[in-house]
């Protein structure tokens, strides 16, 4: 039986009150949104906050809205199930809707939030374990220890970014709006990550993610998300692939992007995708050859580590398979790609 350590829970009604609580308590405080990542981590004593500040009662953090200029503004506390079911998101940002629809299972999607998924802690098979288990192993550098069990003699933590929504938001060029004691700031999601598995995001002290803004997508925008996992229901990704294809009126690719996740500490954009696919007409033999070339590029550029369950060699072989399938799915205007 896994029991939670003691803590105090506060549920402010406004954002400023929440920031004030966080600032007063300093590092002893943590934010809780849906709790589907934090609560298991607390049960494993991976996080031991004395104060939890719940955002559940701050109404301004909920909902999906279309801004006048066409951008989608999604409140950080909007549940993953709501984002997946939103007609606006399905229409204008299909890769994001698909990614949300494949996070965990129905219960966790109803409880978990988009903001929480963006801020999901990195995962590693040597880290996401009980205190007893980790102690028996001598701990690791991400928590309570100093060594890495993934890369022998490794100096950097390589726990894997495992948030399905992050690569989808990267292909969409999303912006994150954050509110902290110093006021509000906006950052491109591409600039939010750091290649460090211990803390892989640039989130300031007492800062709260308030909104995720997806810029307007062109009329010919297509996107899809592919996810490899052990069980086709409730697992974290062994590999996640988000793709974007923007086509013109003649179905020729004007812009393309592929971002892969669950390999290392941050999601990885596959290089030279745009150059390879641009100008190809969907459905043509040249397009199909270009997709295969992109899959090969991804295979060469992605090297999964034995950081999460699932054989690293198998996951590497699956990179081109999922890149290819997800690109074809986006071209057809369907998806998501998964095995159930």
């Amino acid at each position: 039986m896994l029991r939670l350590p003691k803590f105090e829970l506060r549920s402010p009604r406004t954002l400023s009150e929440a920031i004030q609580l966080l600032e007063e308590a300093g590092p002893a405080a943590m934010v809780i949104a849906g709790g589907t990542d934090l609560v298991p981590n607390m049960k494993h004593e991976l996080a031991t906050p004395e104060l939890l500040v719940s955002l559940a009662h701050i109404e301004e953090l909920r909902g999906v809205r279309r801004e006048p200029e066409g951008a989608l503004a999604i409140g950080a506390m909007t549940s993953l199930a709501e984002v997946a079911a939103s007609e606006l998101v399905q229409r204008f940002a299909p890769a994001l809707a698909q990614a949300c629809s494949l996070v965990a299972g129905p219960q966790l999607r109803a409880m978990g939030t988009l903001g929480g998924n963006v801020l999901l802690d990195t995962r590693c098979q040597w880290f996401n374990q009980s205190y007893f288990w980790r102690q028996a192993l001598g701990f690791c550098m991400k928590k309570d220890g100093s060594v890495c069990h993934v890369v022998q003699g490794g100096k950097n933590c390589v726990a894997a970014a495992s948030n399905d929504t992050a690569p989808a938001l990267m292909t969409l060029g999303a912006r994150l709006e954050l509110e902290g004691p110093e006021g509000s700031r906006t950052t491109a999601i591409d600039d939010f990550w750091v290649a460090d598995g211990i803390v892989n995001k640039k989130l300031g002290a007492s800062e709260i993610l308030t909104r995720i803004v997806v810029p307007p997508t062109p009329r010919g925008h297509r996107g899809a998300y592919g996810k490899l996992r052990d069980r086709g229901s409730i697992d974290f990704p062994l590999l996640g692939v988000a793709v974007r294809l923007d086509v013109d009126e003649t179905e020729r690719v004007a812009h393309a992007d592929v971002v892969v996740t669950a390999l290392a500490a941050q999601p990885k954009r596959v290089a030279k995708v745009g150059d390879t696919l641009r100008g190809q007409t969907l459905g043509s033999p040249e397009f199909e050859s270009a997709v295969l070339a992109v899959a090969e590029l991804a295979r060469k550029q992605c090297r999964p580590l034995p950081n999460i369950p699932g054989d690293a060699d198998y996951r590497r072989e699956m990179v081109p398979v999922y890149v290819k399938r997800t690109l074809f799915a986006a071209a057809r205007g369907d998806g998501p790609v998964h095995h159930v």
Partner: peptide, 27 residues
């Protein structure tokens, strides 16, 4: 499992399936 993997603790909260093992009682 007590950590959100198995669904054995599913209850309905406002009619939606919810995992009781990850839900803080106060919330």
């Amino acid at each position: 499992c007590d950590k959100g993997d198995c669904g054995a603790c599913t209850v309905l909260v406002d009619g939606r399936p919810w995992l009781a093992c990850l839900t803080l009682a106060k919330s």
